[in-house]
Nucleic acid binder design. Structure first.
Length: 801
RNA sequence: GCAGAUAUGGCGGAACUGGCAGACGCGCUGGAUUUAGGUUCCAGUGGUUAACACCGUGUGGGUUCGAGUCCCACUAUCUGCACCA
C-alpha cells in the first residue's frame, strides 16, 4: 500500500523544483512555433486573491501546459495592474503611502498565485506602478498628444457638495456621496480626453480580422453603436440660427410634431432673453444636472420635460411651426444634443407625446400609432409624407437624404454611441500626465528623454477642495519651466486612469526590462499578436476596447507589427457564493482560496474550479463539490497500488483510453474543462473496474491530468519511475480507428418513441440496420409502415400509421 | 431604459451539425468494512404507477418521422452602461 496523498508536502516540493529548473521560462527562441497566452492581470486589492481569479488562470494554465507538451514555445506571463482608487482610499484612511500598500498587496497576491502552481514565466513580471513601466505608458500618451488624439475639454464630473471632491460613479450611491451621504451634483471640469472615436470605424470593421467569441464582438459593435442617419437643420422662427438635429430616421420627417433639446444645449443660454418661462426652464435644467445619463435614460418610462415658451421651430419639408421642449431623455453627449420628435414612430417620443398631449402623426402605415409607436422599418409604407408617400422606409431614407442635401437643409451623417475617453483623474495614485502648461506656448509635452516623469511623494493624498489632484499641493513639483520657450510653466496635476497601464501591458511582457523602447521590435514580431486572451465579460466594452484602440494607434505609428493585439478572445463566467449570489463581504459568502488550498490542496482547487460547470457561465461555489474533486485525486493517487509492469494498454481498456485522449485533448482546446475532467473520472472508474492496470495505462492518465493537477501527477510520474519530468513529456496521441467499439448499440424507435435496442457492427449498412430494427420490434408493428429512417450509429425509426 | 447572456432532477451540470434527456460529480437511501465516528468499497437514485405504461428540459404557440436543441410570442434571473477594476 502506498502512503496517503499529502498535497501539502508534494505541492511545495514541485513548486520549488519548477522554480529551480525555470521550467516555464519562455525563451526568445524565434525558430520554435510560439503561443502567447494571456490572462487579465489582477488589481492587487487589499482583500487578497478571490476564488474568482483561479478560474481563468487555471484554464489558460491548462492550455499553456498542454501546448508546451506539444512542442510550442509558450509565453504565459503575469503582472500587476496596481494603480487604482481602492489603494488610494486605503492610503488616505490609514496614512500609509500607496506605494507601500501596493508593495504589500503584490507580495501577498504573488505568494497566493505561486501556491496554485501556475506555469507563469515570472521572469517577465510587470507592474504598472513601476516607473520603468509607466515610462512607456507616458510615452504612448505623448505619441497620442502629438498625433492630435489627446485634447482638453470641459466635462461634467460627479461632485460631492460636502467633501468637495470629484467622485467616481461607483462612489455615488443613489445620487448621494458614498462617504458622507451628501448630495452629488454634476460639475464641469477641464479634462484630458482621448479621441477613441477617431478609431470607431476601424474598431468595428477589424473585428472581422479576429477570432473573438460572438457575444464579445456583438457587444463591442453595439457599444460603438455606429448608425447611419442624417443631420437636419430646422429654422427657428424669427431667428438667423438654425437648430441642427441628428436622426437615424430622416424618412419620418413629415411626422415631426415637436423638437427636444438636451437641458445642457447651448441655445438655452443663448436665447435666454426670449424664453418667457425662464425660471421653469432653469429649474428643470438644475434638476437634470443632478442625474447621471444612466438615470436620465433609466427613468424613461416616466418622461419629464418643459416646453420652451417663446421659441419654435419650422419643419423644413412642410413649413409647419412646431414647439421646442427640453427634456433629459435627450443627451448632449450623443448626436447634436437635439432631436426631432416623431411620436408615431419612436417609442420614447411616443411616451413623451402621450404624457404631454402632443399630436401624433402617422407617416408610416402598418401599425396603430394611437396604441403604440410603429417602429418596424422592414414592412411599413410611407403615408402623409408629400413626395415620400408610397415609398418603403429604405427608399424614403435615400430620397429624403438626397433632397436635404440638394437644398442645403442637411446631410447624411454617421454617428457613434461611442464617446471619447475621459482620461483625467483628479487623483494621486496614477501615472502623471507628462504635459506642462505654459502661458505662452499652451500645453507642451515633456521631452521624451525626460521620461519617466515620476510621481512625487506628497504628504496628503486627499484631493484639493477645488477639485484638483493632490499633486496640485506640490508647488515645487508643479512649478517648472516650459520645455519649449524656457519660461515659467506649470505641470499637469491630473493623473491617468487605471485603464492606461492595462491598455498595453501585453506588449511589455515581451521585453519587460527594455529601457530604450516599449519592447524589442524583433521580439514583438515573433510574439505578437497574443494568440489567446481570456478575460471577464465585464471588460468587453472598456478595457478590451481601450487596449485595441491603443494598439491600433501604435500600429499606425509603426511601433507594433500587427493591426490587432489579440487574435482570440474568450470569456469565463463568475464564481458565485454558495447561495448563488455574487461573493461579497457584506453578503458573507466569500471563499478564500488559501483556505481551500490548506484544507484540500492546490490541485483540488484547480480541479474543482475547472469541474464546477461550463467555463463561460457563472457557477455557484460548493464545499461538497470541492470534496468530490479531492476524492477523485485520492483515487488517482491510489491507482499506484494496482499498477503492474507493461508497455501496452490493457486490452479491455484500449478503446476507452483512445476515446479519453481524444476527448480530453479536444476539450482543453475548447475550454470544456468540466467534460474533460468527467472523461478522466470515467477512465479512473474503468481502471478500478478492471482491477489492475499497466504502467502504460497509468502514464496516459497522468499526462492527460497534468495540466489540471500538475503537482500530484508530477509526483506520481516520479514515483512510477517514468523518465524525465512530466511537464516536458510529449502529449499522447490517439488512433481514431480505436476510439470506436466493434459493436455498437442502436436504438429502435416507432414513431419517435424508443421501443427496443439492438447491437450491430459499427459499420453496418442502412438496410441491414433497418431490417434488424424491424425484427426487434416485430410484435409492435401493427400499422402500415410509411417511412423508415436510419441515423448511422444512433437509431432506427419506423414510422407507421 | 439600452446592450449582452442564461433558464435541464434535491444540487452543480452533460447531451457533437435536430436523433436513447439527465454523462460526470455532489447529496440522499440501503448494504459491506470499522469498537464507534470518519474514511473506503458495493448497489440504487427524474416524477407518477402494483405493473404495463405515461409524463418530464422557465411559460404559451409552431415546424418535424423525431425538438433541451430550430421558428414566433412571453416571463424570470445575471452582467455591463463609460471616474470600480
Amino acid at each position: 500500500m502506498s502512503e496517503a496523498y499529502n498535497p501539502e508536502v508534494i505541492e511545495k516540493k514541485w513548486q520549488k523544483i519548477w522554480d529551480d529548473e525555470k521550467a516555464f521560462h519562455a525563451p526568445n527562441d524565434y525558430t520554435k512555433p510560439k503561443m502567447y497566452n494571456l490572462v487579465e492581470f489582477p488589481y492587487p486589492s487589499g482583500q487578497g486573491l478571490h476564488v474568482g481569479h483561479p478560474r481563468p488562470y487555471t484554464a489558460m494554465d491548462i492550455v499553456s501546459r498542454k501546448r508546451r507538451m506539444q512542442g510550442y514555445n509558450v509565453l504565459f506571463p503575469m503582472g500587476w495592474d496596481a494603480f487604482g482608487l481602492p489603494t488610494e482610499n486605503y492610503a488616505i484612511k490609514n496614512h500609509i503611502h500607496p506605494k507601500i500598500v501596493t508593495k504589500n498587496n503584490v507580495a501577498r497576491f504573488k505568494a497566493q498565485l505561486h501556491r496554485l502552481g501556475y506555469s507563469f514565466d515570472w521572469d517577465r513580471e510587470v507592474n504598472t506602478t513601476d516607473p520603468n513601466y509607466y515610462h512607456w505608458t507616458q510615452w504612448i500618451f505623448l505619441k497620442l498628444f502629438k498625433a492630435g488624439l489627446a485634447y482638453k475639454t470641459e466635462m461634467p464630473i460627479n461632485w460631492c457638495t460636502s467633501c468637495k471632491v470629484g467622485l467616481a460613479n461607483e462612489e455615488v450611491v443613489g445620487g448621494v456621496c458614498e462617504r458622507c451621504g451628501s448630495p452629488v451634483i454634476r460639475k464641469m471640469q477641464s479634462q484630458w480626453m482621448l479621441k477613441i472615436t477617431a478609431y470607431a470605424d476601424k474598431l468595428i470593421d477589424d473585428l472581422d480580422l479576429v477570432d473573438y467569441i460572438e457575444r464579445v464582438k456583438i457587444q463591442q459593435k453595439n457599444w460603438i453603436g455606429r448608425s447611419h442617419g442624417a443631420e437636419v437643420d430646422f429654422a427657428l422662427k424669427g431667428k438667423e440660427e438654425k437648430l441642427r438635429i441628428y436622426t437615424t430616421r430622416p424618412d419620418t420627417l413629415f411626422g415631426v410634431t415637436y423638437m427636444v433639446l438636451s437641458p445642457e444645449h447651448p441655445y438655452i443660454e443663448q436665447f435666454k432673453d426670449e424664453i418667457k418661462n425662464w425660471d421653469e426652464v432653469v429649474a428643470y435644467r438644475e434638476a437634470a444636472a443632478r442625474k447621471s445619463d444612466f438615470e436620465r435614460t433609466e427613468l424613461a418610462k416616466d418622461k419629464t420635460g418643459v416646453c420652451i415658451d417663446g421659441i419654435s421651430a419650422i419643419n423644413p419639408v412642410n413649413g409647419e411651426e412646431i414647439p421646442v421642449w427640453i427634456s433629459d431623455y435627450v443627451l448632449m453627449s450623443y448626436g447634436t444634443g437635439a432631436i426631432m420628435a416623431v411620436p408615431g414612430h419612436d417609442d420614447r417620443d411616443w411616451e413623451f407625446a402621450k404624457k404631454f398631449n402632443l399630436p401624433i402623426i402617422e407617416v408610416i402605415a402598418g401599425g396603430n400609432v394611437d396604441e403604440a409607436a410603429f417602429t418596424d422599418v422592414q414592412t411599413g409604407t410611407l403615408v402623409n409624407s408629400g413626395f415620400l408617400t408610397g415609398m418603403s422606409v429604405e427608399e424614403a431614407k435615400k430620397a429624403i437624404t438626397e433632397f436635404l442635401h440638394k437644398n442645403g437643409l442637411g446631410e447624411p451623417k454617421t454617428n457613434f454611441k461611442l464617446r471619447d475617453w475621459v482620461f483625467s483623474r483628479q487623483r494621486y495614485w496614477g501615472e502623471p500626465i507628462p504635459i506642462v502648461k505654459c502661458e505662452k506656448c499652451g500645453y507642451v509635452p515633456i521631452p521624451e528623454d525626460q521620461l519617466p516623469l515620476e510621481l512625487p511623494d506628497v504628504k496628503s493624498y486627499m484631493p484639493t477642495d477645488t477639485g484638483e489632484s493632490p499633486l496640485a499641493h506640490m508647488t515645487e513639483w508643479v512649478n517648472t519651466t516650459c520645455p519649449c520657450c524656457g519660461g515659467p510653466a506649470k505641470r499637469e496635476t491630473d493623473t491617468m486612469p487605471q485603464w492606461a497601464g492595462s491598455s498595453w501591458y501585453f506588449l511589455r511582457y515581451i521585453d519587460p526590462e527594455n529601457d530604450t523602447c516599449i519592447a524589442d521590435p524583433e521580439a514583438m514580431k515573433y510574439w505578437l499578436p497574443v494568440d489567446w486572451y481570456n478575460g471577464g465579460m465585464e471588460h468587453t466594452t472598456l478595457h478590451l476596447l481601450y487596449s485595441r484602440f491603443w494598439h491600433k494607434f501604435l500600429y499606425d505609428q509603426g511601433v507594433v507589427p500587427t493591426p490587432e493585439p489579440y487574435q482570440k478572445r474568450t470569456s469565463h463566467g463568475m464564481i458565485l457564493g454558495s447561495n448563488g449570489e455574487k461573493m461579497s463581504k457584506s453578503r458573507g459568502n466569500v471563499v478564500n482560496p488559501d483556505d481551500v488550498v490548506n484544507d484540500f490542496g492546490a490541485d483540488t482547487l484547480r480541479t474543482y474550479e475547472m469541474f464546477i460547470g461550463a467555463f463561460e457561465l457563472a457557477a455557484a461555489w460548493s464545499e461538497d463539490g470541492v470534496k468530490g474533486c479531492r476524492k477523485f485525486l485520492d483515487r488517482v493517487w491510489k491507482l499506484q497500488d494496482i499498477v503492474k509492469d507493461g508497455n501496452a494498454y490493457t486490452p479491455a481498456l484500449e478503446t476507452r483510453i483512445h476515446q479519453t485522449i481524444k476527448k480530453v485533448s479536444n476539450d482543453y482546446e475548447e475550454m470544456k474543462y468540466n467534460t474533460g475532467i468527467a472523461a478522466m473520472m470515467t477512465l479512473v472508474n474503468d481502471f478500478y473496474k478492471v482491477g489492475s492496470i499497466t504502467k502504460a495505462d497509468y502514464k496516459v492518465l497522468l499526462v492527460l491530468l497534468n495540466p489540471v493537477a500538475p503537482h500530484i501527477t508530477e509526483e506520481l510520474w516520479e514515483r512510477m519511475g517514468f523518465a524525465g519530468r512530466l511537464y516536458n513529456t510529449a502529449w499522447p496521441e490517439y488512433d481514431e480507428e480505436k476510439t470506436v467499439e466493434a459493436m455498437i448499440e442502436v436504438v429502435v424507435q416507432i414513431n419517435g418513441k424508443v421501443r427496443a435496442k439492438i447491437t450491430v457492427p459499427k459499420d453496418v449498412d442502412k438496410d441491414t440496420a433497418i431490417a434488424a430494427g424491424k425484427e426487434a420490434v416485430a410484435d409492435k408493428l401493427t400499422g402500415t409502415i410509411v417511412k423508415e429512417i436510419y441515423v448511422p450509429g444512433r437509431l432506427v425509426n419506423i414510422v407507421q400509421k
